[in-house]
Design a protein around this nucleic acid. Structure first.
Lengths: 244, 244
DNA sequence: TCAAAAGTGTTTCTTTTACACCCATGC
DNA sequence: GCATGGGTGTAAAAGAAACACTTTTGA
């Protein structure tokens, strides 16, 4: 990392979210020689689009080229990074002098929300971190700086924009059952739906295509498998699904 | 303006919106010696909260201390400012050398949405501009750089967040008639409401308090004047009004 | 044949919509 | 009194919610 290639002042942190074990999970990296975790992030190159920078950073971290990624808020408090904590984190690692002084500069950070499928991700660490793990969004470990706030705001964004985000398409596998779709929205909105009414509501949207059935091995009827009608799905994202 | 006090890389531009003549209007400033208009904006001081910077800049421009102000998007294209245009704008004014070279640096800009009452504003120009005017949001003049995009995104934000923005409270006078409230939402959503049903909808929200009647001088019944119940209003902003 | 879970249908209640009616005001 | 626009009431239509019924599957 050649410091001279990067812009000061503004960094990027991404909240990667997946749906796993009937829960939303967030990807975190552990800082070297510490018990603190942080969001995958990075810096912006000179002459680079900010959106492009966010994609580049996530590509390095996950190997994913195509994923839903959207900025949601600039975290702009002057004292957003605890100085003491920053010093301690830097002390434990022997970065080259130029990297250390770069990291000590003040940075606002732009928060991005990314929606991914856990099984498509091969997450890896960066030069600041030595471990990489998914955590249920309801039980997160200690994090550096204002990263807990960033995740909290991402959650709010997720709820408020629920009608305009490609949640099903980004978080579920290509084919899925009605039950898993319902479960996803129940978790997102923290609210139970009536199974029968959920069916009707979704079918009225005309966004699902039956692709077969899933043999569960259970002693009951096999549920249908669906996939999304891409054209109709895009249309719904424009108009809003009308969930809440 | 002492350049050394300010951060590079990131600037601020605000879309000030008022409701006047049954239309939404935007405040623009005209660049000195040019036919191009721009949003009121500025730079961030070292060690300053970004939100605070946006307030400081608007205070200088409008004299308003309290107003609704919220960031809505970072405009992060590397080439968002047309170089040719920038050069031409700078050529026509004799800024000190340090200011010129400051302005020539690359800047991303953070867009803020501000909701104001036109009559409370005493808008004035800054060192870059010589005129200041409100324009109907539907008929805007030529603007510099990506400022048309910024306004377009602000409009989208306004529509999408309509349920969570204090539109009535920020854009209408302290007391107002049901008709003017209806008109505001009709303009915002570009959609007509049935007068009777609008009454019922609003009354069910239990957010209005009757404060008297307005003598219009017209040969018909005087409409009631209302004001908002502050406590209930805040509550509604949290939950969302449920308009669209 | 039974239990379990998926899929579908029906009834009820609530909300939305359309529109009619009444009321105050100035000429 | 009458035209005008504000305020209120009512009936029809649409939509949401609750819940019962039917189907499929493996044991």
């Amino acid at each position: 990392m050649n410091i001279a290639d990067y812009l000061p002042t503004l960094s990027i942190d991404s909240v990667l979210i997946c749906f796993h074990n009937e829960e939303l999970e967030v990807l975190l990296l552990r800082w070297k020689n510490s018990d603190f975790w942080s969001l995958p992030g990075g810096f912006i190159k000179k002459n680079e689009d900010v959106d492009q920078a966010a994609r580049r950073i996530l590509l390095e971290r996950t190997g994913l080229k195509h994923l839903f990624l959207e900025q949601f808020q600039l975290f702009g408090k002057a004292n957003r990074r605890d100085e003491k904590q920053l010093d301690e984190l830097l002390k434990t690692i022997n970065f080259p002098e130029d990297v250390t002084s770069w990291l000590e500069k003040p940075f606002y950070t732009l928060g991005f929300l990314a929606l991914v499928r856990r099984e498509e991700i091969n997450a890896c660490t960066d030069q600041f971190t030595d471990q990489c793990q998914w955590f249920p969004i309801q039980s997160l470990p200690s994090m550096i700086f204002d990263h807990p706030d960033i995740i909290a705001e991402a959650k709010k964004q997720l709820r408020r924009q629920v009608n305009y985000l490609p949640l099903g398409k980004s978080l579920l596998p290509d084919t899925f059952t009605m039950k898993s779709l319902q479960l996803l929205y129940e978790v997102l909105l923290n609210k139970k739906f009536d199974r029968a009414n959920f069916h009707k509501k979704i079918h009225k949207l005309q966004v699902l295509i039956k692709t077969g059935t899933l043999s569960t091995g259970q002693s009951n009827k096999s549920p249908y498998l669906y996939r999304f009608d891409d054209k109709r799905y895009e249309q719904l994202m424009e108009e809003g699904i009308g969930y809440v």
